[in-house]
Computed example of a mutant assay.
Amino acid sequence: MAGLILAAMAVGGGLITVGCTHAVSGRATVNDTDLAAHRSSVASSSSAASSSRAAAALGMVCAPLVAGAMEIDFKIDTFERRLDEQADREAVEAAARNAGAALSDTGNSVEGALRVNDVAAEKNSVFVEYIAATKDFADEMNSLVIRSVDVDIFVEAWERYDEASDAAIKACV
């Protein structure tokens, strides 16, 4: 058995030595057609990876925006119902506080996501406006609880939020 193993090792060693001693003379040349195809493939792959990163970044910003916008709409609807019902002051204030908190939380969440995700400049500006409008409307909503507010300023903040929200949701699609 030992003899067989030694013989196999000797034959294997000989094949390796003979195989490595043969050299090919000449110069290597590039096939231009293959080179162009390779470069195109690499560029396409790089473009796809970049597009995938951009889509992932957009998704990371849009997720808290869409979820927050749905919660804000629900809280604002509740606030409006309390006003329409002519509910007592405590119920209206609670609804205003809840809406203000939802606005603040969403603005902060979108701002945090935007800070760590690289989004295209034209969409970034839409999200920055959304954040500012959300925070301004949150301030106005929270002011209802603390003091009386100027109705015109309140309505303006609400309209700005609505427009910014619509634009931001469109930027996510």
Rank of each mutant, 00 (worst) to 15 (best):
112 G>Y: 02
21 T>Y: 05
16 I>C: 00
26 G>F: 07
126 V>R: 09
46 S>E: 12
34 D>E: 13
92 V>W: 02
127 F>G: 07
56 A>C: 03
100 G>A: 10
105 D>C: 04
15 L>R: 02
8 A>G: 01
58 L>C: 00
76 I>P: 03
20 C>N: 15
127 F>W: 11
65 L>I: 10
89 R>S: 08
71 E>M: 06
115 R>I: 05
47 S>W: 00
49 A>F: 08
31 N>C: 10
129 E>S: 15
15 L>F: 01
78 T>K: 14
67 A>Q: 12
18 V>M: 06
36 A>L: 12
121 A>M: 09
72 I>Q: 06
111 E>D: 15
62 C>Y: 02
100 G>K: 02
58 L>F: 01
93 E>H: 09
126 V>P: 00
22 H>V: 14
81 R>H: 14
98 N>L: 07
81 R>G: 10
67 A>Y: 09
121 A>Y: 04
60 M>S: 14
129 E>K: 15
116 V>W: 04
24 V>P: 02
96 A>Q: 06
61 V>R: 03
88 D>Q: 10
78 T>Q: 11
110 V>K: 02
88 D>G: 08
10 A>Q: 00
108 N>C: 02
120 A>D: 07
42 V>S: 00
85 E>W: 11
121 A>Q: 09
60 M>N: 13
106 T>S: 08
97 R>E: 13
47 S>L: 11
19 G>L: 00
102 A>N: 01
89 R>W: 07
50 S>E: 03
55 A>K: 05
10 A>R: 01
81 R>Q: 14
85 E>G: 05
102 A>T: 02
34 D>S: 12
124 N>D: 09
40 S>V: 07
92 V>G: 00
103 L>E: 03
99 A>R: 01
107 G>Q: 01
48 A>S: 14
78 T>H: 13
118 D>H: 09
20 C>D: 04
81 R>W: 08
105 D>K: 14
130 Y>L: 11
48 A>Y: 06
21 T>A: 09
116 V>F: 12
105 D>F: 09
31 N>M: 08
114 L>D: 03
111 E>I: 04
45 S>D: 13
97 R>C: 02
73 D>Q: 08
28 A>T: 10
39 R>E: 14
8 A>P: 01
94 A>S: 12
53 R>F: 05
95 A>H: 05
38 H>R: 11
129 E>G: 04
78 T>R: 13
24 V>G: 04
117 N>M: 04
97 R>A: 09
91 A>D: 05
129 E>H: 12
20 C>L: 11
45 S>R: 11
43 A>V: 03
26 G>H: 10
43 A>Q: 10
102 A>D: 03
90 E>G: 05
127 F>N: 14
67 A>C: 03
56 A>T: 13
126 V>S: 08
17 T>D: 03
77 D>G: 14
10 A>T: 00
123 K>P: 04
48 A>E: 10
119 V>H: 06
101 A>F: 10
55 A>P: 00
57 A>Y: 05
18 V>K: 11
110 V>C: 06
18 V>A: 12
83 L>A: 07
88 D>K: 09
18 V>T: 07
91 A>H: 04
108 N>T: 11
113 A>E: 01
76 I>T: 10
91 A>V: 11
109 S>Y: 06
97 R>I: 11
89 R>D: 12
73 D>V: 02
23 A>Y: 07
113 A>V: 03
115 R>D: 08
57 A>D: 15
108 N>R: 05
98 N>Y: 06
101 A>G: 01
12 G>P: 01
120 A>Q: 08
65 L>W: 06
78 T>G: 09
95 A>S: 15
97 R>V: 11
